[in-house]
Nucleic acid binder design. Structure first.
Length: 404
DNA sequence: AGGTATTCACATGAAACTATTCTCTGAGTTAGG
DNA sequence: TAACTCAGAGAATAGTTTCATGTGAATACCTGT
């Protein structure tokens, strides 16, 4: 036994591929950000007035995921902070970054404001207060002295989808209730069409300035990857063409640099686990599969029981029908059977319809609303995951729920 | 044949309800001076 | 009299149910040729 372990550890030690894995992790912040110079300059010139404690224009950043939006703003933020530190006097502004996608933040307006208060060093209970009160506490907190507060709201589109755009309106409107201090907002959105569906009042006040982050092209991605892989891996462990392949994969996915870096990191991990001395092209393919699978299985695992029941019947039906699409009604019937066998309560069709839609959003199934004329109108459902994953998913569900 | 009207089987939307968790308030209780 | 306890009122949230209304196109039903 001991010998075996020694072997494992030893091979792990010898086969080190990484020299600094953290440079490939998604929270790593490189010192310079290639191909984003223009955007950074623009951001900086818009936010510069903050240095004197003056209100900046509200700013809105667009761009697909992994185009460096967050990285760029945070970079500018840090530079601003550094500069104001140098002057020695207390800085006339504060910058808070808030990622609206985090579960604990994004769900409600209350939590949103509460989180801001916490970031600013205040305290609010998680529940029990009227939302109004939370707002006034927020005002009290920042209005205690003369300052400018810049809020960076990452992935606002997520929050707005959940809450409605009211809170953005409230936020921009707060300025009129503040006597000493002022608030500016930087919104970041992955969704390019985000502003279209928003109350025009909010739109005009929120996006006084806009900057678009175009996706990276394959060549730019290659440069970024090459740079990072030099930092992350030991010398000459990367096979020729690996970086190119990674870049090509990611470029196909709308120039998402984050995805590309993930791919590279996972490939490295797989190579290490294989005991391989180098990262080979095949590791990229494997990594690509693994990422997809882990993502889906993780979702399935954490989904509540009723969701699993529904998914299980979808899987069953899809096996029975051999890939032929099936419809909401079919799923609901099957789902009812499953529930009865399990002595689990049965949800309404209305609800199950929503659950099916959510699976669609998660990318586990493909859904299309079709009308069969007199035959009615319903969703056509197809599983969107490969057989391999389906089997695993099935096992996971069967494990967590005792069928029969 | 060509044009309307129906009709199916849900989709989609809004409101209301339920259970749970939490705060805040103020009445009642207690212990000490 | 100050400090403490404890029940009840109010809020917020997630996850649903209930009720109401919407919908795309295959079919049924006319109409006039």
């Amino acid at each position: 036994m001991k010998l075996e372990l020694d072997k494992i550890f030893e091979s792990f030690d010898n086969n080190r591929i990484f020299s600094d894995k953290s440079t490939l992790q998604s929270n790593y912040r490189p010192e310079d950000i290639p191909h984003r110079g223009d955007q950074i300059k623009q951001i900086a010139s818009i936010l510069a007035p903050a240095l004197r404690g003056e209100k900046t224009s509200n700013l809105f950043l667009y761009g697909k995921t992994g185009t460096g939006k967050t990285l760029s703003v945070l970079y500018v933020r840090d530079e601003l902070m550094k500069r104001s530190m140098k002057t020695g006097t207390e800085s006339p502004f504060k910058i808070e970054y808030l990622n609206c996608k985090l579960k604990k933040v994004s769900d409600t307006e209350y939590r949103m404001v509460a989180e801001l208060i916490k970031k600013l060093g205040g305290k609010v209970p998680d529940t029990g207060l009227p939302t109004e009160t939370v707002y006034s506490r927020f005002i009290d907190l920042i209005d205690s002295k003369k300052q400018f507060l810049l809020l960076i709201l990452d992935e606002v589109d997520q929050a707005v989808k959940k809450i409605s755009s009211d809170f953005l309106y409230n936020l921009t409107r707060l300025n009129s209730e503040l006597s000493q201090s002022q608030i500016g907002v930087v919104g970041i959105s992955n969704d390019l069409t985000f502003l279209e569906g928003i109350d025009p009042r909010v739109r005009s006040s929120l996006s006084e300035e806009e900057i678009v982050f175009p996706p990276y092209n394959a060549i730019q991605l290659q440069e970024i990857l090459a740079h990072r892989s030099n930092l992350a891996f030991k010398k000459s462990v990367v096979e020729n063409g690996v970086v190119q392949k990674c870049a090509a994969f990611a470029a196909r996915e709308h120039g998402d640099a984050r995805r590309a870096l993930d791919l590279l990191r996972i490939a490295g991990e797989l190579a290490e686990r294989d005991g391989s001395k180098r990262i080979l092209l095949k590791h990229i393919d494997e990594a690509n599969v693994k990422i997809e699978r882990d993502k889906i299985l993780d979702v399935i695992k954490t989904e509540p029981r009723q969701f699993q029941h529904v998914l299980y019947s979808i899987i069953r039906l899809s096996e029975e029908n051999k890939g032929e699409p099936f419809f909401t009604g079919d799923v609901y019937n099957d789902y009812q059977d499953i529930c009865k066998k399990n002595h689990s309560e049965v949800l309404t069709q209305r609800r199950v319809g929503d659950i099916i839609q959510e699976f669609d959003m998660l990318g586990i199934i493909n859904v299309r609303v079709i009308s069969k004329g007199r035959g009615g109108r319903m969703r056509e459902i197809k599983l969107a995951i490969t057989k391999n994953i389906i089997e695993k998913a099935k096992l996971i569900i069967e494990e967590s729920i005792n069928y029969r």
